[in-house]
Computed example of a mutant assay.
Amino acid sequence: MASRFRHAALVGKYQAHGIRPVLEEIAHFLVRQGMEVSLEKQTAQSTGITGYGAFTPDELGRHCDIAVVVGGDGTMLGVARELARHGTPLVGINQGRLGFITDVSIGEFAKALAPMIAGDYEEERRTMLTGVVWRDEERIFEGFAVNDVVVSRGAASSMVELKVEIGSEFVANFRADGLILASPTGSTAYALSAGGPILHPGIAGFVMVPIAPHELSNRPIVLPDTAEIVIEIVAGRDTSVSFDMHALASLLHGDRIAVRRSRDQVRFLHPRGWSYYATLRRKLRWNAGVA
């Protein structure tokens, strides 16, 4: 069994109605477990919770040895990007609707957290994407993504044309509404709704999924995560790129998005007995017909 955790970062979806009493209940529980508790600064300011330290995500990563994230997968993605470089493990308490990576029910947080704080848990590490947008020889944008990097057309424009190279080798020109490059974590997000496959988190790969391609032969493909993938804007107006929904809009023809596996990984902690396949069954309703 791993060592006991001592200092918890508490992060919440502070926009959610009624989140303050939930966060206070969790904070009080953690204190009763003998832990020091610090809130993410924006969470503390937006909810008005006082009596605890309030720090930026970077400060939380330097001072806390575990992060408890209350919200949905979107809240978790934002925190995970910030804390991955510190190696801080994260526990997700689900207040959202789906919750692939925030898998502890809000009604069962005490039962789940108590043994985890003591060092009894399942741990998994998830791959991240890192990318750079180049215009001529100038780096104009950098981003990290736990889920995906998405290049897409403008809302009122026609499809885009994208040239894809992998490891300096030309692969294809895609004419489509866009292109998704997803990690195994992101394979159950936008990529899945666009027709891509589910990648088990243990697979060292990415999935590349064209969005509504002009050619029906342009199918999703699973790629090794060892090579850099470069997407060049060939044609199209108002094209944008997003890293987990953090977007850079108005890309120009000739702009290149270079994406590779990040050297940082996200550490997710789960209650003992957690199963990836059970999560899929529950979230995707694969239980139909099972007694």
Rank of each mutant, 00 (worst) to 15 (best):
R32C: 00
R32V: 00
Q33N: 09
Q33P: 02
G34S: 03
G34R: 03
M35F: 01
E36M: 05
V37C: 05
S38N: 09
S38H: 11
K41T: 07
K41Q: 12
T43Q: 05
T43Y: 04
Q45H: 04
S46D: 12
T47V: 10
T47D: 00
T47E: 00
T47H: 03
I49E: 02
G51C: 09
Y52T: 08
Y52C: 01
A54P: 08
A54F: 08
F55V: 00
F55R: 10
T56R: 11
P57H: 01
P57C: 01
D58R: 15
E59L: 07
L60W: 04
C64P: 09
D65M: 00
D65S: 05
A67F: 12
V69P: 03
V69C: 04
G71V: 09
G71T: 11
G72Y: 03
G72I: 14
L77W: 03
L77C: 01
G78L: 00
V79Y: 13
A80S: 03
R81L: 03
A84P: 12
A84C: 10
G87W: 08
G87Y: 01
P89D: 09
V91A: 12
V91L: 12
G92S: 02
G92P: 13
I93P: 07
I93A: 09
I93Q: 04
N94L: 08
N94G: 12
Q95D: 00
Q95V: 06
G96Q: 07
R97C: 04
G99A: 07
F100I: 02
F100Y: 14
I101G: 03
D103V: 00
D103R: 05
V104A: 02
I106D: 12
G107V: 04
E108P: 00
A110N: 05
K111Y: 11
A112E: 10
A114Q: 12
P115N: 01
P115G: 04
M116F: 12
A118I: 08
D120M: 01
Y121L: 13
E122R: 06
E122I: 13
E123Q: 13
E123R: 06
T127K: 07
L129T: 10
L129V: 09
R135H: 11
D136S: 14
D136V: 15
E137A: 15
E138Q: 15
G143V: 09
G143R: 03
G143H: 07
F144V: 13
N147V: 02
V150W: 15
V150S: 13
V150K: 14
V151F: 12
R153V: 13
R153D: 07
A155F: 13
A156D: 15
S157W: 11
E161T: 15
L162R: 04
L162Q: 09
E165Y: 13
E165C: 09
E169Y: 13
F170I: 10
F170S: 04
F170C: 05
V171M: 14
N173A: 06
F174P: 07
R175L: 00
A176K: 06
D177C: 00
G178E: 04
